[in-house]
């Protein structure tokens, strides 16, 4: 599409259909994500963007009565293959949720959670990873003296950045964010956006957002979804200035949403 064609496509999805029981929620979605880019998924409520996002680390597996068809590959291997280890997959494709959901433990225990799951016990390694991750998530200065306080004693925006740090600690390849700032105030949202821009050269980021200006501020590519269909995908600048489709233009201009 543009000059950056040499960038590697890390996740490829083809002809994705998803059914909740009888109801079809996703209709033949083809979407690829390139390494070290931020891709924003936008669209009105109920258009299936979160549902699609949750397919990428198989969090939808937890919902009963769901059928997913189509092909999903991460670095070329099928993530819905019969021998796929979802535990391993989720270490490679991490997720940040809409509501900040730190565990009711100390900040330190939160950030080391994923590492301890993997059996890392060395105190020095853990300490280093905690500091590094909290710095990457731009929360280090606010929590460095309170690492052993409960993560729940911090504000919503701080909690969300602790959650991001918790995820960065296990160094996933891809970070999925499901409306990470919709429960936060504008200043906290701004901090999260800065954090994402800071870390994007090390990670591939896919963010679902309701906030169109957020998408335009931080994303390289934008995908617009409507009623379970992928309407349009392309470079963010081009999409916001000269969208191809009338629906995209109407949505971006606030005619519906």
């Amino acid at each position: 599409m543009t000059t950056k064609t040499e960038a590697k496509e890390i996740i490829k999805t083809e002809n994705v259909n998803l059914y909740y029981g009888e109801r079809k929620a996703l209709h033949g979605i083809n979407l690829n994500f390139r390494e070290n880019e931020i891709t924003a998924l936008i669209g009105p409520s109920g258009c299936g963007k979160s549902t699609y996002l949750r397919c990428l680390n198989r969090m939808n597996d937890l919902i009963p009565n769901i059928t997913i068809t189509g092909s999903f590959t991460l670095n070329g291997h099928n993530i819905y293959g019969p021998k796929e280890d979802t535990v391993q997959l989720r270490k490679e494709v991490g997720m940040v949720f809409q509501q900040p959901n730190p565990f009711p433990f100390s900040v330190y225990d939160n950030v080391t959670f994923g590492l301890k799951l993997a059996g890392i016990k060395d105190k020095k390694t853990l300490d280093e990873r905690v500091e590094e991750s909290l710095k990457q998530a731009a929360i280090w200065n606010e929590v460095k003296d309170k690492l052993h306080k409960s993560a729940l004693s911090f504000s919503g925006g701080q909690q969300q950045r602790i959650c991001i740090a918790r995820l960065l600690a296990i160094q996933p390849d891809v970070i999925l964010l499901d409306e990470p700032t919709s429960a936060l105030d504008p200043i906290s949202s701004q901090m999260i956006e800065d954090t994402l821009l800071n870390i994007k050269d090390k990670y591939t980021i896919i963010i679902v957002t309701h906030n169109m200006s957020q998408a335009s501020r931080i994303s390289d590519k934008t995908a617009f979804m409507l009623n379970g269909h992928l309407m349009e995908v392309g470079d963010t600048k081009k999409m916001f200035l000269t969208p191809d489709k009338q629906e995209t233009s109407d949505y971006l201009n606030g005619k519906f949403g």
């Binding site: 969090m59 991490g94 799951l117």
Partner: peptide, 22 residues
């Protein structure tokens, strides 16, 4: 809260680790 369970799973916890550690 349900959230803790999804958070644990999304960090690569097995079901047992999710139950035991969270």
């Amino acid at each position: 809260p349900r959230d803790y369970r999804s958070a644990a799973l999304s960090l690569g916890a097995t079901r047992w680790q999710m139950m035991y550690k969270v």
